[in-house]
């Protein structure tokens, strides 16, 4: 009974973690893209110069979500505490 609660909460934590982590970078990437497009529209010849820091910034923001995704994947597929709960069932 305890183990089913444990795994249900693990899945919930994994899903909610990625969902919540995506909010902040989503807003940040929206602002960054908006500003980049504004800059390109104002000065189309500066596209090449804007593109490199823009993509770099997007990638660094995206990394924040990926950290949460890494934690979620560890919780789902390589949970370090799962052995405490599955050992009782198997043996």
């Amino acid at each position: 009974m305890e183990s089913s609660y444990f795994f249900a909460l693990t899945v919930l934590a994994a899903a909610l973690g990625v969902g919540i982590a995506a909010i902040g970078p989503g807003i940040g990437q929206g602002i960054a893209t908006g500003k980049a497009v504004e800059g390109i529209a104002r000065q189309p010849e500066a596209t090449g110069k804007i593109m490199v820091p823009f993509i770099l910034g997007l990638a660094i923001m995206e990394t924040l979500v990926l950290y949460a995704l890494a934690v979620s994947l560890i919780l789902l597929f390589a949970n370090p505490f799962a052995s405490m709960f599955t050992a009782a069932v198997v043996h």
Binding site: L66, Y67, L73
Partner: peptide, 16 residues
């Protein structure tokens, strides 16, 4: 850590 996790998770999540 950030450099390696960025690349690894991007690739792994796509495959997943």
């Amino acid at each position: 850590f950030s450099l390696s996790i960025r690349l690894f998770i991007n690739m792994a999540s796509k495959h997943l």
